[in-house]
Simulated scan of single mutants.
Amino acid sequence: MQWALLVVLGLIAPNVNFNPGVPQSPHLHQVVGGNAFNVTMDPNTDISTTADCTTCTFTEDFSNYWTAVLYFKARNGTFKGVPQKGNVGFETANGGGQTVYYTAYGGSNKVNVTAFKPGFRMLVGDPFARTKDVVSPKFRQLTYTCLKTASTRTGETLYFPNTTCAVGLMSNVRFPTCWDGINTDSADHMSHVAYPTSGTFESGGPCPSSHPVHIPQLFYETVWDTTKFNDKSLWPTDGSQPFVWSNGDPTGYGIHADYVFGWKGDSLQRAMNANCDVSCPTLKTQTIAQANKCVKSMNVIEDIDSWLTSLPVNMPVTYS
């Protein structure tokens, strides 16, 4: 069984993951969660003690969740940000938001998980990847769903689908689920975590001996309202798909996401132990309207919403 929490889009701000202390990231990101997110975030500081509001359904979750931003590249070479919309049941979320799932255990072996610790961070995906052979061996379950209806959950692809999507395009990011049990971060923000040696978390795959501790399956769903760009007269004349990540990726293989743990006290472990399914009586909640009030100003002021002649930060579009 899995339980879900809603994370409402409350800000678009510089990413601290790639260039700590530098006020502007190499590419644009959308960040959701607690308002302690900043240009520099001390890994020795528990951000649940410094945030005073969160865009999450569960008010003890001050974590930060972020991804790149999707853009449409028109036939004339200009770019327009693709808006997000709320997932099923969360349609009134400010700016659309993400749905973030934490799964307590996978498969039939009922292996309980250990909640993340203060200071825990991780990154999944490679913003420079442009081909399947770069992504598939290293990262699993980074996919897209071309939504026929809001509830479509089949037909996932590793790349941007080369067709219009009736309801929108969902990006799906599943993080590694095994931890070395020692380090809350690593130089590449990846080495301290790993995927199961076989199968997946959902199928009960075993953790490698180097990373023996089972951690929750962390899963982001983000719905991009690509329906605003379904007029194929705006698409490239060669029929190729027109969407590109803000990190300059027109293939979809460069999908990536970041996570900084920020749950207060033992709240996440309590929820994991209770194996909550959507609702979770052991946690405190807030309404979507209350979550929508938690916002944070952009640290770098630039136009990211108009039709642009280049991607934000002048990020080039690259195919290799």
Rank of each mutant, 00 (worst) to 15 (best):
M1W: 15
Q2L: 15
Q2P: 08
Q2T: 12
A4L: 10
V7I: 09
V8E: 04
V8S: 01
G10F: 00
V16M: 13
N17W: 01
F18T: 02
Q24G: 15
Q24W: 13
S25C: 01
S25L: 03
P26K: 07
H27A: 15
H29P: 02
H29T: 03
V31R: 03
V32F: 11
V32P: 00
N38G: 00
M41Q: 10
P43T: 05
T45C: 10
I47V: 09
S48T: 13
T49L: 08
D52R: 04
D52V: 02
D52P: 09
T54A: 03
D61P: 03
F62R: 00
F62C: 02
S63W: 05
S63H: 01
V69K: 00
Y71M: 09
F72D: 00
K73V: 12
G77W: 15
T78C: 09
F79L: 04
P83M: 07
G86Q: 05
G89D: 11
F90S: 10
T92L: 07
A93D: 12
N94I: 07
G95K: 08
Y102Q: 05
A104M: 09
Y105A: 00
G107P: 06
K110C: 07
V113H: 11
A115D: 15
A115M: 15
F116K: 03
G119Q: 07
L123H: 01
G125T: 09
D126E: 11
T131D: 06
V134H: 01
S136K: 14
S136Y: 05
F139M: 05
R140K: 12
T145A: 11
C146H: 06
L147N: 15
T149G: 15
T149Y: 08
A150V: 12
A150Y: 03
A150S: 14
S151Q: 10
T152I: 14
L158G: 02
P161G: 10
N162Q: 11
T164F: 04
A166Y: 15
A166I: 00
R174M: 11
T177F: 07
C178G: 03
D185L: 06
D185K: 03
S186C: 02
S186R: 02
S191F: 00
P196A: 11
G199N: 04
G199E: 00
G199Q: 05
S209A: 08
H211Y: 15
V213F: 04
H214A: 06
P216L: 13
Q217V: 06
L218D: 08
D225K: 09
T227H: 02
T227A: 08
K228A: 08
K232V: 14
W235Q: 01
G239I: 05
S240R: 10
V244R: 02
G248W: 04
G252R: 05
G254S: 07
I255V: 05
D258S: 02
D258P: 04
Y259P: 03
G262A: 05
W263I: 00
L268Y: 06
Q269A: 09
A271K: 10
A271R: 04
C280E: 07
P281T: 14
Q286K: 13
A289N: 07
K293F: 01
C294A: 10
V300H: 06
I304G: 09
I304L: 04
S310A: 15
S310Y: 06
L311N: 11
V313S: 03
N314Q: 12
Y319A: 00
